[in-house]
Protein backbone atom coordinates (compact mmCIF):
# COMPACT_ATOMS: atom_id res chain seq x y z
CA UNK A 1 0.00 0.00 0.00
CA UNK A 2 1.33 3.40 -0.98
CA UNK A 3 -0.11 5.46 1.86
CA UNK A 4 1.98 4.37 4.82
CA UNK A 5 1.08 6.26 8.03
CA UNK A 6 3.71 8.86 9.09
CA UNK A 7 6.20 8.02 11.85
CA UNK A 8 4.51 10.09 14.56
CA UNK A 9 1.27 8.20 13.95
CA UNK A 10 3.10 4.89 14.30
CA UNK A 11 4.65 6.15 17.55
CA UNK A 12 1.18 6.86 18.99
CA UNK A 13 -0.02 3.44 17.82
CA UNK A 14 2.90 1.68 19.49
CA UNK A 15 2.27 3.62 22.72
CA UNK A 16 -1.42 2.68 22.66
CA UNK A 17 -0.63 -1.01 22.26
CA UNK A 18 1.79 -0.84 25.19
CA UNK A 19 -0.85 1.02 27.23
CA UNK A 20 -3.48 -1.63 26.42
CA UNK A 21 -1.36 -4.68 27.17
CA UNK A 22 1.48 -3.83 29.56
CA UNK A 23 -0.75 -3.48 32.66
CA UNK A 24 -2.24 -6.93 32.11
CA UNK A 25 1.15 -8.51 31.42
CA UNK A 26 2.53 -7.01 34.63
CA UNK A 27 -0.49 -8.35 36.50
CA UNK A 28 0.13 -11.86 35.19
CA UNK A 29 3.90 -11.80 35.84
CA UNK A 30 3.43 -10.73 39.47
CA UNK A 31 0.93 -13.51 40.14
CA UNK A 32 4.04 -15.76 40.14
CA UNK A 33 6.10 -13.55 42.44
CA UNK A 34 7.08 -14.85 45.87
CA UNK A 35 6.97 -11.57 47.75
CA UNK A 36 3.62 -10.64 49.19
CA UNK A 37 4.06 -6.89 49.66
CA UNK A 38 6.74 -5.67 47.33
CA UNK A 39 6.85 -5.20 43.59
CA UNK A 40 10.45 -6.43 43.63
CA UNK A 41 10.83 -9.76 41.88
CA UNK A 42 11.93 -12.18 44.59
CA UNK A 43 11.40 -15.54 42.93
CA UNK A 44 8.92 -17.79 41.15
CA UNK A 45 6.09 -19.43 43.07
CA UNK A 46 2.70 -21.04 42.49
CA UNK A 47 1.80 -20.34 46.10
CA UNK A 48 -0.86 -17.71 45.26
CA UNK A 49 -2.68 -20.17 43.02
CA UNK A 50 -2.66 -22.79 45.78
CA UNK A 51 -4.07 -20.18 48.14
CA UNK A 52 -7.06 -19.70 45.80
CA UNK A 53 -8.08 -23.32 46.23
CA UNK A 54 -8.03 -22.93 50.01
CA UNK A 55 -10.43 -20.01 49.88
CA UNK A 56 -14.03 -21.21 49.86
CA UNK A 57 -15.46 -17.82 48.89
CA UNK A 58 -13.43 -17.82 45.65
CA UNK A 59 -14.20 -21.41 44.73
CA UNK A 60 -17.91 -20.92 45.50
CA UNK A 61 -17.93 -17.65 43.57
CA UNK A 62 -16.35 -19.36 40.58
CA UNK A 63 -18.90 -22.18 40.65
CA UNK A 64 -21.78 -19.66 40.87
CA UNK A 65 -20.36 -17.57 38.03
CA UNK A 66 -20.06 -20.61 35.78
CA UNK A 67 -23.61 -21.75 36.65
CA UNK A 68 -25.11 -18.29 36.04
CA UNK A 69 -22.96 -17.88 32.91
CA UNK A 70 -24.09 -21.20 31.37
CA UNK A 71 -27.79 -20.81 32.12
CA UNK A 72 -28.01 -17.15 31.09
CA UNK A 73 -26.01 -17.92 27.93
CA UNK A 74 -28.32 -20.79 26.97
CA UNK A 75 -31.45 -18.66 27.36
CA UNK A 76 -30.12 -15.50 25.73
CA UNK A 77 -28.65 -17.48 22.81
CA UNK A 78 -32.00 -19.14 22.04
CA UNK A 79 -33.95 -15.87 22.38
CA UNK A 80 -31.38 -13.84 20.45
CA UNK A 81 -31.05 -16.37 17.61
CA UNK A 82 -34.82 -16.52 17.11
CA UNK A 83 -35.01 -12.71 17.05
CA UNK A 84 -32.14 -12.51 14.55
CA UNK A 85 -33.92 -15.05 12.28
CA UNK A 86 -37.09 -12.95 12.33
CA UNK A 87 -35.16 -9.77 11.51
CA UNK A 88 -33.04 -11.28 8.75
CA UNK A 89 -35.48 -13.63 7.05
CA UNK A 90 -38.94 -12.14 7.46
CA UNK A 91 -40.79 -9.02 6.46
CA UNK A 92 -43.21 -7.89 9.14
CA UNK A 93 -44.92 -4.83 10.51
CA UNK A 94 -43.46 -3.29 13.65
CA UNK A 95 -39.84 -3.86 12.61
CA UNK A 96 -38.68 -0.44 13.77
CA UNK A 97 -40.29 -1.07 17.18
CA UNK A 98 -38.35 -4.35 17.54
CA UNK A 99 -35.11 -2.70 16.44
CA UNK A 100 -35.62 0.10 18.98
CA UNK A 101 -36.37 -2.50 21.68
CA UNK A 102 -33.08 -4.25 20.89
CA UNK A 103 -31.13 -0.98 21.08
CA UNK A 104 -32.37 -0.12 24.58
CA UNK A 105 -30.08 -2.63 26.40
CA UNK A 106 -27.09 -1.60 24.30
CA UNK A 107 -27.33 2.08 25.21
CA UNK A 108 -28.57 1.92 28.81
CA UNK A 109 -25.77 2.45 31.36
CA UNK A 110 -25.17 -0.66 33.47
CA UNK A 111 -25.89 1.08 36.74
CA UNK A 112 -29.36 2.05 35.52
CA UNK A 113 -30.02 -1.56 34.46
CA UNK A 114 -28.95 -2.78 37.90
CA UNK A 115 -31.07 -0.42 39.98
CA UNK A 116 -34.17 -0.66 37.80
CA UNK A 117 -34.10 -4.48 38.07
CA UNK A 118 -33.54 -4.21 41.82
CA UNK A 119 -36.66 -2.02 42.00
CA UNK A 120 -38.65 -4.60 40.00
CA UNK A 121 -37.55 -7.53 42.18
CA UNK A 122 -38.32 -5.70 45.41
CA UNK A 123 -41.70 -4.58 44.06
CA UNK A 124 -42.60 -8.18 43.12
CA UNK A 125 -41.21 -9.51 46.38
CA UNK A 126 -38.78 -11.82 44.55
CA UNK A 127 -35.80 -13.02 46.56
CA UNK A 128 -32.37 -11.89 45.34
CA UNK A 129 -30.19 -14.86 44.41
CA UNK A 130 -28.86 -16.84 41.49
CA UNK A 131 -32.21 -16.70 39.65
CA UNK A 132 -32.46 -12.91 39.86
CA UNK A 133 -28.84 -12.64 38.65
CA UNK A 134 -29.46 -15.03 35.75
CA UNK A 135 -32.56 -13.09 34.62
CA UNK A 136 -30.55 -9.84 34.71
CA UNK A 137 -27.78 -11.37 32.59
CA UNK A 138 -30.26 -12.76 30.03
CA UNK A 139 -31.87 -9.30 29.81
CA UNK A 140 -28.61 -7.53 28.91
CA UNK A 141 -27.30 -10.33 26.67
CA UNK A 142 -30.23 -10.91 24.28
CA UNK A 143 -29.45 -7.83 22.18
CA UNK A 144 -25.76 -8.68 21.81
CA UNK A 145 -26.49 -12.24 20.69
CA UNK A 146 -29.10 -10.92 18.22
CA UNK A 147 -26.59 -8.46 16.72
CA UNK A 148 -23.88 -11.14 16.29
CA UNK A 149 -26.20 -13.80 14.81
CA UNK A 150 -27.93 -11.24 12.59
CA UNK A 151 -24.55 -10.21 11.13
CA UNK A 152 -23.83 -13.86 10.27
CA UNK A 153 -27.28 -14.34 8.71
CA UNK A 154 -26.76 -11.29 6.49
CA UNK A 155 -23.59 -12.81 5.14
CA UNK A 156 -25.43 -16.07 4.35
CA UNK A 157 -27.14 -16.92 1.12
CA UNK A 158 -30.91 -17.33 1.58
CA UNK A 159 -31.22 -19.07 -1.78
CA UNK A 160 -29.77 -22.29 -0.30
CA UNK A 161 -32.85 -22.58 1.92
CA UNK A 162 -35.08 -21.89 -1.08
CA UNK A 163 -33.26 -24.58 -3.05
CA UNK A 164 -33.83 -27.09 -0.22
CA UNK A 165 -37.53 -26.28 -0.19
CA UNK A 166 -37.84 -26.57 -3.96
CA UNK A 167 -36.25 -30.00 -3.57
CA UNK A 168 -39.05 -30.93 -1.18
CA UNK A 169 -37.87 -30.03 2.34
CA UNK A 170 -40.41 -28.20 4.50
CA UNK A 171 -39.47 -25.13 6.60
CA UNK A 172 -38.43 -27.12 9.67
CA UNK A 173 -36.25 -29.57 7.73
CA UNK A 174 -34.67 -26.72 5.74
CA UNK A 175 -34.00 -24.88 9.00
CA UNK A 176 -32.23 -27.81 10.72
CA UNK A 177 -30.45 -29.19 7.66
CA UNK A 178 -29.46 -25.97 5.85
CA UNK A 179 -29.77 -22.88 8.03
CA UNK A 180 -28.43 -24.19 11.35
CA UNK A 181 -25.26 -25.88 10.04
CA UNK A 182 -24.23 -22.64 8.33
CA UNK A 183 -25.38 -20.37 11.13
CA UNK A 184 -23.64 -22.45 13.81
CA UNK A 185 -20.43 -20.38 14.00
CA UNK A 186 -22.51 -17.20 14.44
CA UNK A 187 -24.61 -18.80 17.19
CA UNK A 188 -21.48 -20.05 18.99
CA UNK A 189 -19.68 -16.73 18.85
CA UNK A 190 -22.83 -14.96 20.08
CA UNK A 191 -22.99 -17.49 22.93
CA UNK A 192 -19.34 -16.94 23.82
CA UNK A 193 -19.78 -13.18 23.91
CA UNK A 194 -22.81 -13.69 26.17
CA UNK A 195 -20.91 -16.04 28.49
CA UNK A 196 -17.96 -13.66 28.73
CA UNK A 197 -20.19 -10.70 29.55
CA UNK A 198 -22.09 -12.70 32.15
CA UNK A 199 -18.91 -14.12 33.68
CA UNK A 200 -17.34 -10.64 33.93
CA UNK A 201 -20.29 -8.59 35.07
CA UNK A 202 -19.84 -6.78 38.34
CA UNK A 203 -21.99 -3.64 38.19
CA UNK A 204 -25.43 -5.12 37.43
CA UNK A 205 -24.82 -8.23 39.54
CA UNK A 206 -23.86 -6.15 42.56
CA UNK A 207 -27.41 -4.77 42.73
CA UNK A 208 -29.35 -7.98 42.13
CA UNK A 209 -27.35 -10.50 44.18
CA UNK A 210 -28.25 -11.25 47.75
CA UNK A 211 -26.18 -12.60 50.60
CA UNK A 212 -24.99 -16.10 49.76
CA UNK A 213 -25.11 -15.56 46.01
CA UNK A 214 -21.84 -13.68 45.42
CA UNK A 215 -20.47 -14.42 41.97
CA UNK A 216 -16.73 -14.34 41.27
CA UNK A 217 -16.55 -10.62 40.27
CA UNK A 218 -18.32 -9.68 43.52
CA UNK A 219 -15.78 -11.70 45.52
CA UNK A 220 -12.87 -10.15 43.58
CA UNK A 221 -14.27 -6.64 44.12
CA UNK A 222 -14.43 -7.25 47.88
CA UNK A 223 -10.83 -8.50 47.83
CA UNK A 224 -9.63 -5.43 45.89
CA UNK A 225 -11.42 -3.15 48.38
CA UNK A 226 -9.95 -4.92 51.40
CA UNK A 227 -6.28 -5.13 50.55
CA UNK A 228 -4.14 -5.77 47.55
CA UNK A 229 -2.55 -9.21 47.68
CA UNK A 230 -1.03 -11.46 45.02
CA UNK A 231 -4.03 -13.84 45.17
CA UNK A 232 -5.96 -11.18 43.25
CA UNK A 233 -3.27 -11.31 40.55
CA UNK A 234 -3.67 -15.07 40.44
CA UNK A 235 -7.46 -15.06 40.09
CA UNK A 236 -7.21 -12.24 37.52
CA UNK A 237 -4.75 -14.32 35.52
CA UNK A 238 -7.18 -17.25 35.48
CA UNK A 239 -10.01 -14.96 34.31
CA UNK A 240 -7.70 -13.56 31.59
CA UNK A 241 -6.77 -17.01 30.35
CA UNK A 242 -10.43 -18.11 30.18
CA UNK A 243 -11.37 -14.94 28.27
CA UNK A 244 -8.47 -15.25 25.84
CA UNK A 245 -9.30 -18.88 25.03
CA UNK A 246 -12.96 -17.99 24.45
CA UNK A 247 -11.96 -15.11 22.18
CA UNK A 248 -9.56 -17.20 20.11
CA UNK A 249 -12.20 -19.90 19.58
CA UNK A 250 -14.83 -17.31 18.68
CA UNK A 251 -12.41 -15.60 16.28
CA UNK A 252 -11.65 -18.91 14.51
CA UNK A 253 -15.38 -19.62 14.17
CA UNK A 254 -16.18 -16.24 12.65
CA UNK A 255 -13.46 -16.65 10.01
CA UNK A 256 -14.99 -19.82 8.71
CA UNK A 257 -17.05 -18.36 5.87
CA UNK A 258 -20.63 -19.43 5.13
CA UNK A 259 -21.40 -21.35 1.94
CA UNK A 260 -22.79 -19.59 -1.05
CA UNK A 261 -24.97 -20.94 -3.84
CA UNK A 262 -22.65 -19.59 -6.55
Amino acid sequence: MSHRPPAWVLAIVAAVYVFLHAPLLVLVVFSFNESKYSVEWTGFTLHWYQRLLERHDIVDGLVRSVAVGLSSTALSTVFGTLMALALARHRFRGRSFVEALLYVPIVTPEIVVGISLLILYVLLGWPLGLTSITIAHVAFNISFVTVVVHARLQGMDGSLEEAAMILGADEITAFWRVTVPQLWPGILSGAMLAFTMSFDDYVITSFVSGTGSQTLPIVVYTMVRKNIEPSINAISTIVLVVTTVMLIVSDRLSRDKPLSAD
Partner: peptide
Protein backbone atom coordinates in the same frame (compact mmCIF):
# COMPACT_ATOMS: atom_id res chain seq x y z
CA UNK B 1 -8.86 -6.11 26.08
CA UNK B 2 -12.40 -5.33 24.86
CA UNK B 3 -13.40 -8.83 26.03
CA UNK B 4 -11.41 -8.71 29.24
CA UNK B 5 -13.11 -8.12 32.56
CA UNK B 6 -13.38 -4.41 33.37
CA UNK B 7 -12.81 -5.22 37.04
CA UNK B 8 -9.57 -7.08 36.27
Amino acid sequence: PFWTSFLV
